[in-house]
Write a protein that binds this DNA or RNA. Structure first.
Length: 419
RNA sequence: GGAAGCGUGCCAGAGUGGUUGAAUGGGCCGCACUCGAAAUGCGGUAUGCCCCAAAAGGGCAUCGGAGGUUCGAAUCCUCCCGCUUCCGCCA
């Protein structure tokens, strides 16, 4: 969530910031009105409580019926005002929950993904002397992917990874983990379920994101949409020593997404599914270094893409297309010959103190003041989509698929589909 | 799933209705002593919020969480969460 004091002191900045993110700036006015009402209720309550405390102290010395009846009257008033104040607070916080993290000043302003800015294209797009196939055609013919059976067994937007595709998954896990560990990330297998309060703190139940989550009502738990969601709370309610920053983690988890509102979009295959596995990097950084840390994480993502020798481009996400919690976001889009297009495979975000405030993750600086850390997250590999990219970019005319050099040792072969 | 116990500040640990934000010890920080250190002594050592232009100052809240009883709750009651132990089940 945004710092309440920041909104009070810089309402115009906040309005401008959230407007860029396609959020109604009038919400700020609404927030300030409700906040003002909350403050006056709080002041009234505090004053009444002070009176009550004085009376109670006198009563603790000597009981008198007169004082008791006075205190009883105050008690009734307190009960009333507490109820009013709480109601006011609820209303105010509901609006606060509708305010996304304002973007940094230099983020490209735009309404949608059409306004994203391509920063660079890297790698050579493969040239084919034959009719290229899409990954699903290749995957089905080599019995690597089965979505039809998954639909029968589970439902649409699920898939089986079979044979070398399954092996490929673990190879990608190994490659990503080894690379991240070398850069100082601690490997983690985090929980994939999360409490509603913690999820809210991470800013992941705000607004329409809620529709994106699977909820287990019997246990009052949500399924995570990314390892990010349970990696962040690893330092919930903690104060980290400044010299231990940045703290870096790389997590493997299954990701669950309802894909609400994407009906009709990418309905075929496994590009957009309800369940996939992902390796995710996460960093807790000193605020003064978080932009640098962001670039560092992006650098690792590119390193991984270069290791796989897949053509990609780096995109600065425009304000209108950014994530709810993000002050800056980069995506990596990988070239998919079967679609003749770049498609998102990675995302990397600096959420500044938006999430750390929600989960109360602080650090102690040199003056031993406690401040909120900055939290960053970035994809190492969204495994399903990388498998798609490999199948399409490394396809041969005879229907087989070459294995990227970096993965050959893990698979123990150079070509998939050859007898 | 059944039964029992427990949950206090950075840590250990007292406190079972009345000036308790909370004894005591440890840790940490500052000062004194010392050439320096240790030891010792003295002082300090939470967070959030509100009022105040700010500072100074004042007030409110917080003893796992949410409610309740009461003039008054760390202390009593209810529910929830967590931890421990035993039984059952289980990869």
């Amino acid at each position: 969530m945004i710092d309440i004091n920041f909104i009070r002191q810089n309402p115009e900045k906040v309005k401008e910031g959230i407007a860029k993110k396609n959020t109604d700036p009038k919400l700020v006015e609404k927030f300030l009105r409700l906040d003002e009402a909350w403050r006056s209720k709080t002041a009234a309550l505090d004053q009444l409580k002070a009176e009550q405390n004085i009376l109670n102290k006198e009563l603790s010395k000597a009981r008198s019926e007169d004082l008791v009846s006075k205190a009883q009257i105050i008690k009734r008033r307190v009960t009333e005002i507490v109820a009013e104040r709480n109601k006011q607070e609820e209303k105010r916080d509901e609006i606060l929950n509708q305010l996304p993290n304002p973007p940094f000043e230099d983020v490209p302003v735009g309404k949608s993904e059409a306004d994203n800015k391509v920063l660079r294209e890297v790698g050579e797009k493969p040239k084919f002397k034959f009719q290229v196939k899409d990954y699903l055609t290749i995957g089905e013919s080599l019995n690597l992917i089965n979505v039809k059976k998954a639909a029968e067994v589970t439902s649409s937007r699920f898939g089986y990874l079979l044979g070398d595709a399954a092996i490929l998954e673990f190879a990608l896990v190994q490659l990503a983990m080894e690379t991240a560990v070398k850069e100082g990330f601690l490997p983690v297998v985090p929980p994939v379920m999360i409490r509603p309060e913690v999820f809210t703190g991470m800013g992941r139940l705000a607004s329409s994101q809620k529709d994106e989550r699977y909820f287990l009502s019997k246990d009052n738990l949500y399924l995570v949409g990314s390892a990010e969601h349970t990696l962040g709370p690893l330092h919930m309610n903690e104060v980290l020593e400044v010299e231990t920053l940045p703290r870096r983690y790389v997590g493997f988890s299954t990701c669950f997404r309802r894909e609400a509102g994407s009906y009709g979009k990418d309905t075929k295959g496994i590009l957009r599914v309800h369940q996939f596995d992902k390796i995710e990097m996460f960093s807790f950084a000193n605020p003064k270094d978080s932009e640098k840390e962001h670039e560092f994480m992006l650098g690792i993502q590119e390193k991984l893409m270069k290791a796989l020798e897949l053509p990609y481009r780096v995109v600065a996400i425009s304000t209108g297309d950014m994530g709810w919690t993000d002050a800056r976001q980069y995506d990596i889009e990988t070239w998919l010959p079967g679609q003749n297009n770049y498609r998102e495979t990675h995302s990397c975000s600096n959420t500044t103190d938006f999430q750390s405030r929600g989960i109360n993750a602080k650090y102690r600086d040199k003056n031993s003041d406690k401040k909120y850390v900055h939290m960053l997250n970035g994809t190492a590999f969204a495994i399903g989509r990388i498998i798609i990219a490999i199948l399409e970019n490394y396809q041969n005319e005879d229907g087989t698929v070459r294995v990227p050099k970096a993965l050959q040792d893990y698979l123990g072969k150079k070509v998939i589909g050859k007898n």
